[in-house]
Structure formats: C-alpha cells, structure tokens
C-alpha cells in the first residue's frame, strides 16, 4: 500500500477542539476502513489503558495512526487515542520521549485535554528547545499558553518570529501579549537588529507589537479582552 494523500480541508485544531467534536469531525472525513480502525483503536484504548507486556496496545495504535488514517488526520487521531487511554503525565512523557516528531506533536496537542496542572510543562519546554517548527507551534497551544512562565513564553514568541511559525498558531496571544512591555522591548530590539542588517522585519512582528500596547487609561483594569 502506498499513500498518495490529497491535501486535506482545514481540520479541527486537535488542541483547541473538544475530543467529542474531534471524533465527529473524523467520522465525517475518514474513509470506511480508517473510520472502523479508529473505532476499534479507541475502544481498545478505553478498555485497556494499562501496559500489557512490553507496550500497551494503544501505544501500538498511536505509532501506526498516520498510515492507517492518513497524515492529515494523524494528529487528531492520536489525540483521541491518548484521550481514550486517559494517559496521565507519566504515560504522556513516555510516549513523547519514545515518539517520532509526529507523535510528539500529538502529545503536545493532547495536553490541554488531559493534564489539568503544570506537571507536563517539561514537555512543552522540550519542544521549544527544538528547531522543528511544527513542534514549536504545538508547544504554544492552549496548555503552553496557560502554563509557560513569562520569560519562556516571550522567548517562544520571538522564536516563532525567527523561525517563521505564524503567530496565529499561538493560543491566547492577544491575552498574554496585552500590556507586556518586556515583550514589546524584545520585539523592538529584534526589529532594530533586522533593520540594521538590511533584512526584512517579519510582518507578524508588528501584529504582535500592536497587541502589547497597554490599553487606553480609561480601560485600565479590563483584562483578557482580545483587541
């Protein structure tokens, strides 16, 4: 079997979409055999979340999700398998460490659905140390947006601008950037450095810079509104 996958229509974002809705989206888009495979994989994961022998059965399914359902659906499928298996931080860490880049990305997408506290932050930090832009973007999903410390978050935003990750990928960008004068300074310095080198400043930089502006005096105290 050789896969020639057509480019997919924009899928539901696997980190920002509730698992039930992701499932509905996949059921509507997967072909019959892939849909049946997914149904079995989710049932198995729900019934046998623990390890049987050297590897749990849902981890096998996680590894083969791309070739079973197509790379365009693999992220969502993997998030659903992790969710069905109720993977905790230890399991997510193991899967991330033993995973391909695609599997690691799926773990990052699954964090907001599975980890209520800050325990999995080390995975986000690991992803931000890579130069794989797909991992960097996934690290800045809802979990990273909620949990990253200010310093790390600002560097991550800057890294997106450096590496060409669209800032639309950053969850809650407007809320976190709002009134962040340190981020504004870093963006300004970066723009200056680029200008001094005669190189173009990324368009997105000015968008983020505008978001850092403090609110007009009469709106002070209103937090969390996206402008």
């Amino acid at each position: 079997m050789i896969h020639h996958h057509a480019r997919a229509t924009p899928a539901a974002h696997p980190a920002r979409t509730a698992p039930a809705e992701l499932r509905g989206h996949l059921n509507a888009h997967l072909a019959g055999a892939a849909r049946a495979w997914l149904g079995r994989a989710l049932d198995e994961a729900a019934d046998h979340p623990g390890t049987h022998g050297p590897i749990s059965v849902w981890e096998l399914r996680l590894a083969e999700a791309g070739r079973r359902c197509g790379p365009e659906h693999a992220d969502a499928v993997r998030v659903l398998i992790l969710h069905a298996a109720r993977a905790d931080t230890d399991a997510l860490t193991r899967v991330y460490r033993q995973g391909t880049a695609d599997e690691r990305r799926a773990v990052l997408h699954a964090l907001p659905h599975l980890v209520p506290g800050p325990d999995a932050l080390h995975l986000v930090e690991d992803a931000l140390r890579t130069n794989d832009t797909r991992l960097v973007a996934a690290a800045l999903g809802p979990y990273g947006a909620r949990r990253l410390a200010s310093h790390d978050w600002r560097h991550a935003v800057l890294k997106c601008l450096f590496t060409g990750v669209r800032v639309d990928e950053i969850t809650d960008l407007a809320r976190r950037a709002h009134g962040d004068s340190e981020l504004a300074r870093m963006l300004g310095d970066f723009a200056e450095e680029r200008t001094a080198a005669g190189r173009p400043v990324p368009e997105d930089l000015y968008r983020v810079l505008a978001l850092t502006a403090p609110p007009p005096a009469d709106e002070n105290g209103i937090d969390g509104k996206e402008s």
């Binding site: 130069n131 797909r134 973007a137 450096f162 590496t163 060409g164 990750v165 990928e169």
Partner: peptide, 10 residues
C-alpha cells in the same frame, strides 16, 4: 512544515 521558506530556521 508551516514555516515559510524565507522564515525557516534551517
């Protein structure tokens, strides 16, 4: 990858 060629880290 999402990154544009121009912006790409490599």
């Amino acid at each position: 990858p999402d990154a544009t060629h121009e912006g790409n880290s490599i």
